[in-house]
Amino acid sequence: MKLLWQLFFSFFKVGLFTFGGGYAMIPLLQAELVEKRKWISESDLMDYFSIGQCTPGIIAVNVATFCGYKMKAKTGAVIATFGIIVPSMILIILIASVLHNFLDNPYVIHAFAGVRIVVVALIAETLISFWKKGIRDKTGIAVFLVSTGLLIGLGVSPAVIVLLAVAFGLILQKWGRR
């Protein structure tokens, strides 16, 4: 029971402080789940993210479900998912019903501009630690470079990039020397 509360509360916090969509969530998940609670490893988080990228649904929700399931099977999956969506539901309903001019408030506008800058810095830090963890040899660097080219140069969808990477991994296993 205590674990379920912790799960709910951790994901509630992540949901409440994620500004700017799924990717902005990674630094928070890293701090909350990997460093503070030690529920999952950094590699787990990367794997969840990549699978969440090419399975149906919102990436953030997929990642929450993964972590929750790992901790406490189906109940954990539902509780973690619930934790991440509850802050959104409350805030959005408040904004839509009573805080109509929320976004026009100058304080809100300035605060969001400040948060956006911090989010960029937080993600840059995540990028460094994921790079250290996920790219261990020349093949890894090659996959990274090709993926970056496909994503930024050609605008290929992230889901397709993940699937291509999996295919490449399988080919390496079958014919390469890993």
């Binding site: 794997d47 994503l151 990477a165």
Partner: peptide, 22 residues
Amino acid sequence: QSGFYAIRPAVVALILGASLQL
């Protein structure tokens, strides 16, 4: 395992893309 081995560098690229947008 090989699938995941190749996925991780791709995820780093995806995060790079997202951070450039942000």
